[in-house]
């Protein structure tokens, strides 16, 4: 553990980009936690007298068609966007690892059925499948989380299955069994810890994508409903104004969304270097 921390510090100091992404990420976390207190205005308060104002000192990011302060809406939306992404990734992590472990460890029918499940999910363009799922389950935030979790499932299944298969073939599991361990104990104490590093890399690479997906779904009107502040919806609300020159309504939420995803992707690359130094490019 100490060595891992030292390695992490080494990678961070060696790689200013990862460090910057880490600082940015911390900023987003602060916004997600304390957003409602940090926002200068009420994100829902409309004021037609102040509608469509360009960025100014009073309203750094301008106001939208209903006179709401865009900066405040962006700040408050952080929690929802991050919340969706984190819960979706956590869900697919837990479920995907469990299924992948079962497939790799027990083999046989388990393997065939679970693999078929993963292949079937992958047989769709993933965003389209997510659309279909939310449309079918109903238009709610929870369903966005489920849909995003489902489309990410195959990646975790594959990682866990491959790793469990390798361990099983390496005689590692056999050795643990001979020394009197039950299946459950072997899985939780011996196989799972070995799966964790590659799965964590997958998580870091997945987060940005999960945010993109969730924002995309709300952009087309699924899940989050107005007037709830959410980045994707805010871009959608501003879309109509952009070609008449009122760029700020869509620009700022879009740019923040991009920044968040960019930050996660940089962090993902950095995390991969920390966890898996061999694959460092």
């Amino acid at each position: 553990m100490r060595a891992a921390l030292r390695h992490a510090r080494y990678v961070l100091s060696d790689n200013p980009v990862t460090l910057a992404a880490f600082v940015l990420f911390s900023g987003f976390v602060v916004l997600a936690v304390a957003g409602p207190w940090l926002a200068p205005y009420d994100p829902l308060a409309t004021d037609t007298a102040r509608a469509m104002q360009a960025p100014s000192l009073a309203h750094w990011f301008g106001t939208d068609a209903l006179g709401r302060d865009i900066l405040s809406r962006i700040v408050v939306a952080t929690r929802l966007d991050f919340g969706i992404a984190v819960s979706a990734v956590a869900l697919s992590f837990a479920l995907g690892i469990a299924l992948g472990l079962a497939a790799g460890f027990f083999g046989g029918w388990w393997d065939r059925v679970i693999l078929r499940l993963a292949d079937t999910i992958m047989a769709f363009p993933l965003f389209v499948l997510a659309m279909g799922i939310v449309a079918a389950l109903g238009n709610s935030v929870a369903n966005i989380v489920y849909a995003t979790a489902i489309i990410n499932l195959p990646f975790y299944i594959r990682v866990a299955r491959a790793e469990a298969g390798v361990l099983r073939n390496a005689g590692f599991v056999e050795a643990a069994r001979l020394s009197g361990n039950g299946d459950w104990r072997i899985l939780s104490h011996h196989v799972f810890p070995n799966i964790l590093p590659p799965a964590m890399v997958q998580v870091s690479l997945n987060m940005g994508w999960a945010i993109l997906n969730a924002a995309g779904l709300s952009f087309i009107g699924l899940g989050v409903r107005p007037p709830t502040p959410e980045w994707g919806i805010m871009v959608a609300e501003g879309a109509t104004y952009i070609i008449s020159g009122e760029w700020w309504v869509a620009f700022f939420p879009g740019a923040v969304l991009m920044l968040a995803v960019f930050c996660f992707n940089l962090l993902g690359d950095g995390l991969r270097d920390i966890i898996d130094p061999r694959r460092r490019t």
């Binding site: 940005g208 994508w209 993109l212 924002a215 995309g216 952009f219 994707g232 871009v235 959608a236 501003g238 879309a239 952009i242 869509a250 620009f251 879009g254 740019a255 969304l257 991009m258 995803v261 960019f262 992707n265 940089l266 690359d269």
Partner: peptide, 13 residues
Amino acid sequence: TAGVSLPTFFTGL
């Protein structure tokens, strides 16, 4: 790195 971070709907706008 930047390319995969682009929300397509935003780049389009």
